[in-house]
Structures are given as structure tokens and as C-alpha cells.
Amino acid sequence: MGFVTVSPSPHEHTQGSVPKLMYGVLIALLPAFLVSLYVFGIGALIITLTAMVSCLAFEYLIQKYLLKVTPSISDGSALITGILLAFCLPANLPIWLVILGSFVAIAVGKMSFGGLGNNPFNPALVGRVFLFISFPVQLTSWPEPIVNRLSYLDASTGATALATMKEGMKNSESIPEIMAGIPAYTDMFLGKISGSAGEIAAIALLLGLVYMLIRKIITWHIPVSIFLTVTLFTGILWLANPAKNPDPLFHLLSGGLMLGAIFMATDYVTSPMNTRGMLVYGVMIGIITVVIRVFGSYPEGVQFAILIMNAITPLINKYVKPRRFGERLEDG
């Protein structure tokens, strides 16, 4: 026996680690990836791989040559950023745009703030929103589902349900008229629709949510509060005027809501630190999303809603404290 070790308690530590958590998220993303492979074929594969590899490469290069620290790419966080970025891009996006998006995500969104743990905004969303604002045309022409599995850049394009809805509303068509041009809810649920690579299949994303909840990677508070808020808000609008507003299920299944609520809003670094704060955060994301979708000029609002709430997270952390033991609710 050598020297005994002396350290303050506790002397036992969970087997959990950052890489384990991150790889857990990757596993949860797998179903959505498989669906996107099935629906968009080679295009989905190309952009996902490109985003993953370039995110890893940028993180490695920046850590090694700019920050001069030991690269920590093996923790899996850059991989997640890459996959999430690819998941909210159209599967027919040119490779150079994917690489540019990855660069912005990692260099600007993450490393400029000091790397994992210090970034105020979700890096994947920073990359995605940068691309969306700089290259709106390429970012809003999605490939048709299923039919384009073997074509990449030359895929025939279609419109997403949300874009169709926005367009129809602009032309003052009534909801039933618009709905005729939108895929059935079962197709939306299973992912047989046009849209960004990973956001299309609600079922695959929900599967990922269940997995993450079982593994205790995340808690239910953020996704569930987003879903409930969106349902409630759009439900009120729908009940008030069914001819002008689509029903809540449409909002839940369309666009990036599922992907955003399950994988992006729940990003550890940029979401609040306690369950009360998470509920506030989720509700606010839900409200902002619906406001942008219904009243704004963009068809989709989840990404902006999450980024806005990312900015407010430090405030939430400061003012929304967890329920302390011994704090009595009745006598304040």
C-alpha cells in the first residue's frame, strides 16, 4: 500500500460523465436520423456526415491551435451540435453551406465564449439561424419526401406544411382549403413529408424523448411545457375562429417544433438550472413560437423562440430559484 488518499467527502462518485450524457443524446437522435435516411436518402446522409465531421474538425482545430488547450472533441458535444445543425437544414443543401454553418455554430456559437459550458446560445441554432438569414432561398427549398432518395443537389423540391399554411393565409384562403394541400397528419407523424432533414418524423423524435427521460438525461419539464403551451395557445385561437386558424395538432406536428422542444430547448448549457425555471422557459418558448408562426412573417418560429429564451436564461436563473426545503408555500 502506498500513501492513503485523503479528500473531502463524498468519496463515491456516480459512473456518469459528460461523454456518457452526450452519447446518450446521440442515441436518442438515432431514430430521427434513420427516418431522415429513409425519407431523404443520400442527401440526408451527406449533410449529416458533413456537419458532424466539420463540427468536430473546427472544434479540434480551434482548441488546438487558437486556444491552445487539450482538444476535448471526444466528449461528444460537437457531434451533437453537428447532428442538430444538419437536422434543421434541408437535405439538398450544398456541402459548402453546411460547412459554413458548422463553422459559425462551433467558432462563433461555442468556442468564442470559452467552449462547452460557457456558450449562452445553442450553437446548432446559431449556425442554423445564420444560414437561414444569409441564404434564405437555399434554406427554404426542401426536397420532396421519399421520391428523391438517390438524388442530392438536383432533388425536386416541395414546400413544408407551415410554408403552405402561411402562403394560404396570405392569400386569405380558408383553413379547409389550405389543409387540402397539406399532407395527412399520419404522414406528418411518421415523417413522410417535406422539411428539414431531422425534423419531419414526430414519432422518431418522441421515441428519442422517451429514451432520454428513461436514462434521466433530461427531465420532462421543458418539452412538456412547450407542448402544453403550444396546444393551449393554438387551441384557444382555433376555438375562437376555426376558419382562420389550424388546430393544435397541426402546430405540434409541423415544422421544427418537436425537434426544437425535445433536443434544442433542452440543451443543458443554455437552458435554466432548475425545474421551476425550466417551466417558465418552456412556456415562454411555446408562446413566442406561436406568436411568430401565427402573427409573424416567418412560417416557423421555434428556432427564434429558443434563441430568444437562451438570452433570457441567465435572468431566469437569477430570479427563479428552486423550491427550497422548508420554504412554505402557504405563508410565503
Binding site: 502506498g2 500513501f3 492513503v4 488518499t5 485523503v6 479528500s7 473531502p8
Partner: peptide, 13 residues
């Protein structure tokens, strides 16, 4: 040395 300290790097701790 008679033992190995393995806590936070702080004399106070």
C-alpha cells in the same frame, strides 16, 4: 509526504 491530498485545489478547503 505521508498521504495524498485529492480535494479541491485550495488551501482553505
Amino acid at each position: 509526504r505521508t498521504n495524498q491530498y485529492d480535494g479541491a485545489t485550495s488551501c482553505a478547503v
